[in-house]
């Protein structure tokens, strides 16, 4: 009997939810805003789908009905990737410890 590859993907999905659950609970509350901006950036890995979609055209007609949506999605995802990671970087650079250690 053969297992449908969908079941494998579903397994990855469910295990990742568990990983996410435990990893996110260990995130310190003071970093919840960077957490949101970085999750924003990584969810834009959807750009891989956009790249494949945008290459649906041929050499003669790069832009067809389907590839145009791909190109638009690339722009949106790229804004998010660069914007998300850079703004996270900017925020994280601000978190500093006390200069003179007290404890």
């Amino acid at each position: 009997m053969e297992i449908d590859p969908f079941i494998f993907r579903l397994s990855i999905f469910i295990l990742s939810i568990f990983v996410g659950y435990y990893v996110v609970w260990s995130v310190t509350p003071s970093l919840h805003t960077p957490l949101m901006s970085v999750t924003n950036a990584i969810s834009s890995v959807i750009i891989v789908g956009a790249i494949i979609a945008s290459l649906a055209g041929t050499n003669l007609s790069v832009f067809n009905q389907s590839s145009i949506f791909g190109f638009l999605a690339i722009v949106l995802a790229a804004i998010n990737i660069f914007g998300g990671f850079l703004v996270t970087q900017r925020m994280l650079a601000m978190y500093k410890k006390k200069k003179k250690d007290k404890k």
Binding site: S16, I17, V19, G20, L35, T39, S43, V48, G49
Partner: peptide, 14 residues
């Protein structure tokens, strides 16, 4: 796409 499935699950649960 595995990368997208993993990320989606992480962000969703986060």
């Amino acid at each position: 796409n595995t990368a997208l499935i993993i990320t989606g699950a992480l962000v969703g649960s986060s």
